[in-house]
Design a protein around this nucleic acid. Structure first.
Lengths: 134, 134
DNA sequence: TTATGTGCAAACCGTTTGCGAATCA
DNA sequence: TGATTCGCAAACGGTTTGCACATAA
């Protein structure tokens, strides 16, 4: 488990209700980039009484707490993933496969660009849309 | 005028109707990243009879033709800009100011990363969310 | 003349929210 | 017990679409 999600919530003064426990467990066990609908389905498998509204509320809250990253991969909905280790995304436009990668040279370059312009880098987004070379 | 938009449409077999002429003119004159609503307002100033539905249809079409780039800067709506000269975006999260920049080293690095993994780079998205250094 | 494009209004769909009931601390 | 959270269902807002009319070619 990357974060101790329950501990973080407790320290933030949040009640550890059953719906929240279930959603946190789903997020902790997900190794992909699930949509709210997908998180809802996975949570429902554990406890069918969890509602979509609560999934939305919980996910938004965790996003605001910077525990979740929200992605918009040019789809009509958002995807989420734990804000664990930092990485970028390569999206295969033929298969919709999402590949994670990390490149230190790129990290340094991003920082340098904004620093040279008098800014601090707060957040960023890099996505590479690719196609398998034939 | 960066593209001759009217010529491109004519060659694509599209009728050059008045609503389209107006929308193409608005896009050609816009130096920012307007939302559909903003494009609609600017078009309405020229011809009040142009409808929102037509703006949506035209903008979607131009996006599909790769003439327009669609942006989603973590807002509840999309923004568009002409697919002219290639550049990335820096977003000042305090002022919402959008700054364009271009960096050759970054371009080369992106290509290299995906090529080394056996892919061709088809498209990409890079946004740096920053704050003025104090 | 006719295929294509338009305005209108309704539908769509992911997301948010008001409310009264349930629940954790 | 009381503040917080929940499920439900309705509302929201950007976007899409069916349809009858208008228009460029």
């Amino acid at each position: 488990m990357p974060h101790d999600l329950e501990k973080i919530c407790a320290e933030a003064g949040l009640k550890l209700t059953n719906p929240r426990k279930v959603i946190l467990r789903v997020l902790g066990e997900s190794k992909d980039h699930p949509s709210v609908d997908e998180i809802y389905k996975r949570a429902s498998d554990i406890d069918p009484s969890v509602s979509m509204a609560t999934v939305y509320r919980t996910v938004s809250m965790l996003h605001e707490m910077n525990i979740l990253i929200r992605h918009d991969f040019n789809e009509s909905f958002s995807r989420y993933e734990l804000n664990d280790d930092h990485h970028e995304h390569i999206i295969d436009i033929d298969t919709n496969e999402i590949i994670e990668f990390h490149n230190e040279e790129l990290e340094a370059l991003k920082e340098k660009i904004v620093n040279d312009m008098g800014y601090d880098l707060i957040d960023h987004r890099l996505e590479l849309y690719v196609r398998k070379r034939k």
